[in-house]
């Protein structure tokens, strides 16, 4: 089993005709993902790569192809609108890859999410993969291996790094979720860790966090109270100078509480094994979980 997505997930790709979307959709299809529809207003009736039907509206993709997940590559100016359309079409899971959506747009999306049953991953996310089952995202396929460790991360490339360390040690993954680097976003660390905790086939969890915000501390609090599975973590940005935003919207040390040292202490107090440096993430997990 895996969380959120598996081999039965029926995917609609929004913005499928764009360059990046085309590239990644092909890789997802190669991986075995069931991309059943594309969304591109004005190109309804055409086919992507001669096979995947393209629709003008999300509603049609749901009605005609029973799409139950949306993967969004729409450029920043229209991305929030695309998420809103997917919510309106009652698509249960929306994964937004788009980087650079204005916060004011995402705040409106957040209000809609509160009153809907849709789960959002991202934006500014690498996506989600359940190795061996399906992939909705931009991660390189070869670094993954099916298994039982759940990985949740704010960063794309650092998720790849973590997964690759695991795979090279022979440790497979149940699902890897990139929650995205933006300040206003969907699922957070705590939400994903809860899903992993409730998934019988996920045996251990790795959280990759970074400086800024309070989400890692909230997740640690949940772990302390509810999680018996081994949990390891890494917090990126211990060497970041205060007051300078490290790329991600959230990654800024604005006070004592958002610095790496404070976060690491909160995680360790919750019984989480925290890697001393980013080269030791898989090793730290393996030690905590008692695997090779």
């Amino acid at each position: 089993m895996a969380i959120l997505v598996d081999e039965n997930t029926r995917i609609m790709v929004a913005g499928i005709t764009g360059k990046a979307a085309t590239f990644h959709s092909r890789h997802c299809l190669e991986y075995g993902a069931k991309i059943v529809a594309g969304l591109r207003p004005g190109k309804g009736g055409q086919k992507f790569d001669g096979a995947v039907p393209i629709y003008d509206t999300a509603r049609e993709a749901v009605d005609e192809q029973s799409a139950n997940a949306a993967l969004i590559f729409v450029p920043p100016a229209g991305a929030a609108d695309s998420i809103l359309e997917a919510i309106d079409a009652k698509i249960p899971l929306v994964v937004c890859i788009t980087e650079g959506i204005p916060s004011t747009d995402m705040l409106r999306v957040r209000e809609r999410l509160r009153e809907s049953a849709t789960t959002l991953i991202g934006p500014n996310s690498p996506g989600i993969i359940s190795p061996g089952k399906t992939k909705l995202g931009i991660m390189p396929s070869y670094i993954h291996r099916p298994g039982s460790v759940g990985v949740v991360s704010r960063s794309g490339t650092l998720t790849f790094e973590t997964v690759w360390q695991l795979t090279r040690r022979g440790i497979g993954q149940s699902t890897c979720v990139g929650i995205g680097g933006d300040g206003i976003h969907g699922l957070n660390h705590r939400d994903v860790i809860q899903l992993f905790n409730e998934d019988p086939e996920t045996e251990g969890i790795i959280m990759v966090g970074e400086i800024g915000g309070e989400e890692e501390e909230e997740a640690a609090d949940y772990v302390r109270r509810h999680v018996k599975k081994p949990v390891a973590a890494f917090i990126a940005g211990a060497s970041a100078p205060p007051g300078r935003r490290m790329g991600h919207a959230g990654a800024i040390v604005s006070g004592k509480k958002s610095g790496a040292a404070y976060k690491i202490a909160a995680l360790e107090a919750a019984g989480i094994a925290v890697a001393k440096n980013p080269g030791l993430i898989a090793e730290t997990y393996a030690e905590r979980a008692g695997v090779r």
């Binding site: 991360s153 704010r154 960063s155 794309g156 490339t157 650092l158 998720t159 790849f160 790094e161 680097g181 990759v208 970074e210 400086i211 890494f234 990126a236 940005g237 211990a238 060497s239 970041a240 490290m246 790329g247 991600h248 990654a251 001393k276 440096n277 980013p278 080269g279």
Partner: peptide, 17 residues
Amino acid sequence: LTNGAGLAMATMDMLNA
């Protein structure tokens, strides 16, 4: 020269280590 904010930060952390 790095790609992705997370890996860029992690690279800095690795150097510091």
